[in-house]
Amino acid sequence: MCLSIPAEVLSIDGDMAEVSVGGTMYNASIRLVEDVDVGDFILIHSGYGIAKIDEAEANDTLNLMQEIKKKAERS
């Protein structure tokens, strides 16, 4: 299972994007992903963006996790 982590796109210069991975700036290649904009979250794998993260879906998962957490705390 390959390590890959979400990062926020801060600026774009051609094929490269400066991204923030939890507070560390990194220059990632965005050659492999289409339509990346500043502010998007992309998955970074070994220096390359490999996918955009769908914000709506990510929020759904986040909410679900929060809900499970609350339930777990109550029980």
């Binding site: 492999l32 998955l43 879906e57």
Partner: peptide, 16 residues
């Protein structure tokens, strides 16, 4: 893993 995986995947990357 809908937040990152689309049914068709990353077509640009597949093509490359």
């Amino acid at each position: 893993y809908c937040r990152a995986v689309k049914p068709e995947g990353n077509i640009k990357a597949q093509k490359m």
